[in-house]
Simulated scan of single mutants.
Amino acid sequence: MTAPYRISFICTGNICRSPMGEVVLRQLIADAGLADRFEVTSRGTGGWHQGDPADPRTLAALAARGYDGATHRAAQLTDADIRDHDLLIALARDHERALLDRGADPDRVALLTTWDPDQPSDPDVFDPYYSDADAFDTVLTQVERSAAAVLEQLRASRRH
């Protein structure tokens, strides 16, 4: 048996955008019957919220669409995360830069919007932290459509 392919979503504090990516992709993978082949986590570039649950607005947006983010606890990105993950999905260009500045292999780092079928003009997923609940819903929509495309690419590239 081969080790699971490890994916991590990276944002700033690991309480809004990256937990959405983690929860959504993990659920899509489970629904596809592939949970044994992939491991999905999320991390923040900063440690301000380490150990905290996701933002209540993140949890509400996820729950409204049938996702369960209740077990999420914020974690700060470590060198081991950078070394041990096969794919590091940055939610914005500053997260991508932080990963590369810390020595991440550029071939294992990508912006989430790379997969967004709507191809937004802004390559950064908007940070809803200082916004209202509607902004969280908008971000979740973008995360869902992008995560679905991530899964399709993973399925295609990981077939044996």
Score class of each variant (00 low, 15 high):
residue 41 T to D: 11
residue 52 D to K: 11
residue 42 S to W: 05
residue 54 A to V: 11
residue 152 E to H: 10
residue 106 P to V: 02
residue 100 L to F: 06
residue 157 S to A: 15
residue 13 G to Y: 11
residue 79 D to L: 03
residue 40 V to P: 01
residue 98 A to S: 13
residue 134 D to R: 05
residue 45 T to W: 07
residue 31 D to K: 15
residue 144 E to F: 02
residue 128 P to Q: 12
residue 104 A to W: 06
residue 71 T to E: 15
residue 70 A to D: 13
residue 83 R to T: 05
residue 49 H to Y: 14
residue 127 D to T: 07
residue 89 I to P: 08
residue 94 D to P: 15
residue 147 A to L: 06
residue 91 L to W: 03
residue 14 N to G: 05
residue 139 V to D: 10
residue 17 R to G: 09
residue 8 S to F: 10
residue 63 A to P: 13
residue 61 A to C: 06
residue 41 T to Y: 11
residue 143 V to E: 12
residue 31 D to I: 12
residue 127 D to Y: 03
residue 46 G to A: 10
residue 21 G to I: 04
residue 42 S to H: 01
residue 67 Y to T: 01
residue 32 A to K: 05
residue 55 D to R: 10
residue 154 L to D: 04
residue 132 D to G: 14
residue 121 S to V: 15
residue 123 P to W: 00
residue 80 A to M: 06
residue 57 R to C: 09
residue 62 L to I: 08
residue 149 A to C: 11
residue 78 T to Q: 05
residue 106 P to L: 00
residue 143 V to K: 07
residue 158 R to E: 14
residue 91 L to V: 07
residue 116 D to L: 08
residue 3 A to E: 06
residue 28 L to D: 14
residue 32 A to Y: 00
residue 114 T to V: 14
residue 107 D to Q: 02
residue 12 T to D: 00
residue 83 R to F: 08
residue 24 V to P: 00
residue 122 D to E: 13
residue 134 D to I: 07
residue 63 A to K: 15
residue 99 L to S: 04
residue 12 T to S: 13
residue 26 R to P: 02
residue 10 I to F: 02
residue 82 I to E: 10
residue 85 H to N: 03
residue 156 A to V: 15
residue 159 R to T: 15
residue 51 G to A: 08
residue 71 T to S: 02
residue 61 A to W: 07
residue 80 A to S: 07
residue 124 D to K: 05
residue 136 F to N: 11
residue 91 L to D: 13
residue 105 D to I: 06
residue 83 R to D: 03
residue 109 V to P: 05
residue 59 L to D: 13
residue 12 T to A: 05
residue 101 D to P: 00
residue 88 L to W: 05
residue 84 D to F: 12
residue 133 A to Q: 09
residue 3 A to N: 08
residue 69 G to K: 12
residue 79 D to P: 03
residue 100 L to W: 13
residue 114 T to D: 03
residue 66 G to Q: 06
residue 92 A to W: 09
residue 147 A to T: 14
residue 82 I to C: 00
residue 138 T to I: 09
residue 115 W to G: 12
residue 142 Q to G: 01
residue 137 D to L: 10
residue 148 A to Y: 03
residue 106 P to C: 00
residue 114 T to Q: 08
residue 114 T to E: 07
residue 23 V to F: 00
residue 9 F to Y: 12
residue 151 L to P: 02
residue 149 A to P: 00
residue 54 A to T: 01
residue 127 D to K: 12
residue 4 P to V: 14
residue 53 P to D: 08
residue 41 T to W: 10
residue 127 D to P: 12
residue 108 R to Q: 02
residue 38 F to R: 04
residue 156 A to P: 08
residue 105 D to P: 07
residue 79 D to H: 07
residue 105 D to V: 09
residue 36 D to W: 02
residue 129 Y to V: 14
residue 19 P to K: 11
residue 29 I to Q: 01
residue 84 D to A: 05
